[in-house]
Design a protein around this nucleic acid. Sequence first.
DNA 1: TATTAATAAGGAATCATTATCAGTATAATA
DNA 2: TATTATACTGATAATGATTCCTTATTAATA
Lengths: 139, 139
Amino acid sequence: MNAPAPMLRLTTQRQVILEELSKVKTHPTASEIYDMVRKRLPRIGLGTVYRNLELMAENGMILKLEVGGTQKRFDATTDNHYHIRCARCGKVDDLEIPVFNTLTEEASTASSYQILGHHIEFTGICPECQKIQEDEYEE
Amino acid sequence: MNAPAPMLRLTTQRQVILEELSKVKTHPTASEIYDMVRKRLPRIGLGTVYRNLELMAENGMILKLEVGGTQKRFDATTDNHYHIRCARCGKVDDLEIPVFNTLTEEASTASSYQILGHHIEFTGICPECQKIQEDEYEE
DNA sequence: TATTAATAAGGAATCATTATCAGTATAATA
DNA sequence: TATTATACTGATAATGATTCCTTATTAATA
Ligand SMILES: [Mn+2]
Ligand SMILES: [Mn+2]
Ligand SMILES: [Zn+2]
Ligand SMILES: [Zn+2]
C-alpha cells in the first residue's frame, strides 16, 4: 500500500505560483515561472518553484505539459485541450478545436493498455516565425 | 542564406545504429541504443550515437519522439502513427488506429500557424503494470 | 505550550544532452 | 595514384534542466 498523501498547505509561495501561472496563456517553463514569481517573492528558490509545480500537477490543480523541446511547460487551464508548438521558436499555444473523446474509446478497443487519456500536439510555424522566414528568403 | 547541408556518408556506425533500431519495436532511448550497438561496435562512443540519431532524424530516416518522460526516444518506423505510454513504467508502444489526416486540415482553419503535422500520445497502464497493481491491491 | 508534519531556501548532485577537439577515414580532384 | 578537402569518430568537457539533501521555519494538533 502507498503512504497517505500529505495534505497540501496553501502557502504564500504556492499561491503566488498559481496566480502568476493563471495570468498567462504562454505555457511557461519552470524557470520562466520562477522569473515571474520572483518579482513578488524575491527570496523564493528555484527548487521551491519546481517542487510546487510538481505537487500541484499531481493534485490536478495545473497541467504539466510534456511537449517537445528540452523543458517541461505548465498550464493553469486543466480541462482537456490541445496544443500547437512552433517548430522554429518553440512557443506553445492552445489550439481551439473540440476534444475527441471518442479517441479514448477507440484506443481502448485497439490496445491492451488501460487507457487513461490522450493529448494531441500539433507542430507548425507561428505567424511571427513565418514572417521571419519570408524575410530570410528575400535576402 | 543557410549553409548547404553536408552530404551524409553511410558510415559503419550509422548503418549499425539504424539496423539495431530497426530490429526493435520498443522505441529505445539513446543510451539503450548505445547498449545495443556496443555489442557489435564495442569502441563506439555515446556521442556518436547521439550525433547520428540526431542527423538521421533531421534527414527523415528515423523519428525522434518527444514523448513524456525524461529521455527522448527513437523509432525506425517513419510513417505517421500514434503512441501510447505507460504512466507507470514509461514504456512506449505503437497504437494501431488509423491516422486522422483531417486533423491537420481542421487545425489549419482553427489556427494562424502554418501546420506541419500532429502527433497523438495516449496515456495508460500497460498489461504488465496492470497485473502489478492488482497484486498490490491484494496485499 | 509542546510536539509533529509540511514546507522553504540554498546548494550540491544527478542525469541527459550537446559542444569541443584532435585524430581518422572517406570522397573528390588534380 | 597522390593530394586535398570534408565528413566523421571517440574521448572528454561543458551545459542545462531537474532533483535531492540539509537545516531552518511555519503551521496544525495534542
Ligand atoms: Mn494550454
Ligand atoms: Mn512507433
Ligand atoms: Zn515561432
Ligand atoms: Zn507499464
